[in-house]
Each structure stands twice: as structure tokens, then as C-alpha cells.
């Protein structure tokens, strides 16, 4: 395995770039979908049938590991980055949706009453009563999920869903362990960078 063989550095960079693209787009769409789903799943805001169906959706999204979801999307959409993005969107909705719903259930209802007393509409109650209380935590979950998506985006390639996972698995099957070592080192560097970035963003937003 040692020393690592960086001879194919251009292929490694290309794979890492695709992994990062998968992670960024999956986080973006996942966060976008998780916000309404999490609100719908909060039992203190929604009627029981709405929150239970949203909870069932979240549970289904969380049940399978992203790599297994990626297999199904590879079959449905074909090989490539889109399947990886879809798989990680599902994972993001499951994770952020669950934690966000729990955060919304813990909010103080006094502020909601205050906003309602001014005659605010339901949308107004959500925007000025609920969201200000939970937004820092939502940003915290989102940055954590971005971090997690970067880790998983390096792995969905093992089943053909794009990113650095494919060259890693190919090198492994060819017993080119020095190349495997180089790719793993590159992945660790990117994962570490993502962790630093998400910690920085969390500090900026006080999450």
C-alpha cells in the first residue's frame, strides 16, 4: 500500500470534483425538501394525520443506507451522478426531517400565541413564531448533513452512482493498493476540509 501512488492524480481530482458536486446538489435539494417535511411532521403544529404521514415518509427515507438507495436509483436513472444525488437527497430528507421535527416540537408555544393574538395567518405564525426559534438548529443540522453527504458521496460510486467511489473500487479490484491508498488519502483530506467548513459555518450562524 505504501508509498501512495498519485500517478493518476487527474482521475482522482475528477472523481473528487464529481463527489463534491453530488454532495453540494444533494444537500441543497435535501435541505429544501426537508424544511417543509420537518414542519409537517411536527405534532404540535399539524393535525395527527398530516404529521403521521410525514413521519412515515421520514422513516422510510431513513430506513436504508444511502448506498442501498443509490443501487435502486442506478437502476431507475442509470449510472452517473444523478443517481448519487437522488440517493443523498433521500438520506438528507430523512435525517434533517427527523431532527428538525423534534426541534419544532420543543419550541415555546408562548411566542406562537403572541403571534396568533395579532391575527396572523398560519403562514405568518410559521414565519414569525416557529422559524425564528428553530432556524439556528436547522442550520446546524443542515451543515452536519452536508458534512455527512460529502462522506457518503465518496462511497456511492461503489455501486455506480458517480464520484470518487468508482475509481477507488476499480483500483481495489485490480489489487493496485498504492492507488487505493492515494485515493483514500485524497478522500480523507476532502472529508476533513468539509468538517472544517461546516464547523466554521455553524459558528457564523451560532448554531
Amino acid at each position: 500500500m505504501l508509498p501512495p501512488n498519485f500517478e493518476h492524480w487527474d482521475a482522482i481530482l475528477k472523481g473528487l470534483k464529481e463527489s463534491l458536486e453530488i454532495a453540494v446538489l444533494a444537500s441543497f435539494f435535501g435541505i429544501l425538501i426537508a424544511l417543509p417535511v420537518g414542519l409537517l411532521a411536527a405534532r404540535n403544529l399539524m393535525p395527527a394525520w398530516v404529521s403521521w404521514s410525514a413521519r412515515a415518509l421520514i422513516a422510510a427515507a431513513r430506513a436504508f443506507h444511502p448506498v442501498i438507495v443509490a443501487i435502486l436509483f442506478v437502476k431507475a436513472i442509470g449510472f452517473g451522478a444523478i443517481a448519487g444525488i437522488m440517493a443523498l437527497v433521500v438520506a438528507s430528507v430523512g435525517f434533517i426531517g427527523k431532527l428538525f421535527a423534534e426541534a419544532v416540537e420543543e419550541i415555546s408555544l408562548k411566542q406562537l400565541e403572541g403571534v396568533r393574538a395579532t391575527g396572523a395567518s398560519f403562514a405568518g405564525v410559521i414565519a414569525f413564531g416557529v422559524l425564528p426559534q428553530v432556524l439556528p438548529r436547522f442550520i446546524g443540522f443542515s451543515t452536519y448533513q452536508f458534512d455527512s453527504n460529502v462522506r457518503n458521496s465518496t462511497m456511492v460510486g461503489v455501486v455506480g452512482a458517480g464520484g470518487i467511489g468508482a475509481p477507488l473500487f476499480v483500483a481495489f479490484q485490480r489489487f493496485e493498493y498504492d492507488v487505493v491508498c492515494a485515493i483514500i488519502l485524497a478522500i480523507i483530506a476532502v472529508v476533513f476540509l468539509a468538517e472544517v467548513i461546516s464547523a466554521r459555518v455553524q459558528r457564523i450562524f451560532g448554531a
Binding site: 470534483k17 464529481e18 463534491l20 458536486e21 453530488i22 453540494v24 446538489l25 437502476k75 431507475a76 436513472i77 442509470g78 452517473g80 451522478a81 444523478i82 444525488i85 458517480g162
Partner: peptide
């Protein structure tokens, strides 16, 4: 940047419902 450069094959997406 990601949306502009990510590899996207529309033909694969068009027949996704059928494949599903």
C-alpha cells in the same frame, strides 16, 4: 457551479418513471 458542470444525461431521466 455544481449544477452547471455535473454530468447530466437527460435521456436517462426521461425514461426514469418507466424504469421505476
Amino acid at each position: 457551479v455544481s449544477a452547471a458542470t455535473v454530468e447530466f444525461i437527460p435521456e436517462f431521466v426521461y425514461d426514469a418513471p418507466e424504469q421505476m
